[in-house]
Design a protein around this nucleic acid. Structure first.
Length: 376
RNA sequence: GCUGGGAUAGCGAAGUGGUCAAACGCAUCAGACUGUAAAUCUGCCGGCUCACGCCUUCGUAGGUUCGACUCCUACUCCCAGCA
């Protein structure tokens, strides 16, 4: 076990489990929803607000931080934690997902060439350079540089998976080299997760999970699942049946739809991240127990109840739907902040309740009840 | 009172004889958003109709013309300058 990073399981029921991820910046009680702080900030929120709403950890993005302010600057500032004054556990995504979603991305054997979406600079990222960048940023948990694809074409997904598998040993070797250097310099260990590929294809998921399960990594990401497809729960399930039980699993990018969190936790995922809650909040889509609503709709104009009756978040405890409606209609930034507090709380809290339900052996009841109300 | 300028859909604003139910912007009313190129994007936006389509509109009332938001006359109101 690497010093400063470990995972312990407190309770297991089927594939679902409750555990703790120990990191140099603190513990994460799992299952846990990790806040998306792509550019080293959760949009529209302060870290104090994140803490108050119950957030345990955040995830930043290597691609974005590479472009601005640059990973060398973050290293110079003393790392992500010092730079942002965020004290809790942190993740970084490798940048693979973002880079490969750029129209300019060209994949070759050794890496990806792409153009900055900001100024068009021609840039290149490889497994080595992603590992180096992530070590400079200094989050507690890194993702391997994977080859992501979004397709229903088996052949496309097969190629992306193969490429990911070719890159993974390079990720690991570079990571171990950097870990040794860090240790020599008295710096804390930073963990590495391998990212399973295969889209919605069972055979590819199995192959990918089998390929990765015994590799010397600290945990696993499940990637290339974009939207809730009918196959998604089953894909998560069969992947986690293969991955080792004693290492944490992060479901990448899923959590815009609450059902994804339930299926993820039910089938053995420990952490989640998603831009959905905050992005949708900024655009006026608010989660409630009875489904998602658009706060800009005229029906909220004179609704003096909280947007989600009974919700314990700062927004719902203090403000009415009518007030939030007004802030959105007049485009006041505070509206985006309050809505972000609510949505982030809603998702974080829902996962907290999932954790409790697993402990109490009531997950299936809670899930059934929640989903029936939310997707009525 | 005189002299100019102007009155177009909720607002602003194009159009200046036919292809105008009328560009564009805003507002309205909805929708989307899943490892954040996203404080973004999309649709609707005179009335009736699921739709083809039909009907009524460009200050008011007349007139010219095959045909007018576009030309003419009168009136009403606005704005600027001069009395």
């Amino acid at each position: 076990m690497n010093p400063g990073f470990s995972f312990e399981i407190k309770k297991q029921n089927g594939l679902a489990r409750v555990g703790t991820i120990h990191t140099p910046h603190g513990d994460i009680q799992t299952p846990c929803f990790v806040g998306a702080a792509t550019r080293a900030t959760v949009k529209a929120l302060t870290f104090a607000q994140m803490k108050e709403l119950g957030s345990q950890a955040i995830l930043a993005n290597t691609y974005h931080l590479l472009l601005a302010p640059g990973v060398d600057l973050i290293e110079k500032a003393g790392g992500l934690s010092k730079f942002t004054s965020y004290e809790g556990p942190t993740f970084t995504d490798s940048g693979g997902f973002q880079i490969l979603s750029l129209p300019s991305a060209k994949v070759d054997f050794e890496g990806v060439t792409f153009k900055s979406h900001i100024n068009g600079d021609k840039l290149r990222m490889t497994p080595e350079s992603s590992m180096q960048a992530q070590w400079k940023i200094g989050a507690d948990i890194h993702m391997a540089f994977d080859c992501v694809a979004d397709s229903r074409d088996h052949d496309v997904m097969l190629k992306a998976m193969k490429r990911t598998h070719e890159w993974l040993p390079i990720d690991i070797a570079e990571h171990q080299k950097l870990a040794k250097e860090a240790e020599a310099n008295g710096k804390p260990y930073q963990a590495l997760y391998a990212v399973v590929q295969g889209g919605t294809f069972e055979d590819l998921r199995r192959e990918s999970a089998e390929f990765m399960k015994d590799l010397p990594v600290d945990g696993f990401g499940i990637g290339s699942l974009y939207t809730t497809e009918d196959e998604t729960p089953n894909i998560i399930k069969l992947t986690n049946e293969i991955l080792p039980q004693n290492k944490p699993r992060h479901l990448l990018g899923m959590g815009s739809e609450p059902r994804d969190l339930f299926y993820g936790a039910l089938y053995g995922c420990d952490t989640f991240d998603c831009v959905g809650p905050t992005r949708q909040a900024r655009n006026g889509a608010i989660y409630t127990k009875n489904g998602r609503v658009n706060i800009k709709n005229a029906r909220f104009k004179e609704d003096f109840n909280p947007i989600d009756e009974g919700c314990e978040c700062y927004c719902c405890k203090h403000y009415s739907a009518a007030y939030l409606h007004h802030l959105f209609k007049t485009d006041e930034i505070t509206g985006k902040t309050l809505a972000s507090i609510h949505n982030e709380y809603f998702i974080v809290h829902t996962v907290d309740l999932i954790r409790e339900a697993i402990l109490n052996d009531t997950l299936e009841d809670y899930m059934k009840d929640f989903l029936a109300k939310y997707y009525n």
